[in-house]
């Protein structure tokens, strides 16, 4: 049993997005975090001070730990933002703004 089977899901066709130039398949309705998790990716940000990896934490938009760069816009909450066909997702280094 997987969650799609459990919920009797019949998803609309999958589409392609990229994460750090790697192609991933995503389903309509997924958040950016869901697309990354489904591909086995658990971190997509490095912290501003110590450069430590971070990924999803609260999962509901409260903690801002899952910030990521989507289509050149940094500081997007991966747990809230819907993934769209062709999205270019990148690991956010620090503030996400080049020094």
């Amino acid at each position: 049993m997987n969650p799609l089977e459990l919920a009797g899901a019949r998803p609309e066709p999958a589409f392609t997005v990229t994460f750090d130039d790697r192609e991933l398949q995503a389903l309509p309705g997924w958040t950016v975090a869901a697309a990354l998790w489904a591909a086995g990716i658990t971190s997509w940000r490095t912290t501003r001070r110590d450069g430590r990896p971070r990924g999803i934490f609260c999962g509901i938009g409260v903690c801002f730990d899952c910030l990521v760069t989507v289509n050149d816009r940094p500081n997007q909450r991966a747990c809230l933002v819907a993934v769209r066909p062709g999205d270019v997702i990148r690991t956010q280094e620090g503030t996400g703004h080049a020094d």
Partner: peptide, 24 residues
């Protein structure tokens, strides 16, 4: 607790309920 892979219990549930994606 800041390591990737550590998340809130409710966060794991929100991912499951909302996106039908679970951690590997």
């Amino acid at each position: 607790w800041t390591l990737p892979g550590v998340l809130t219990a409710g966060g794991a549930q929100a991912m499951l309920k909302g996106t039908l994606v679970v951690p590997g």
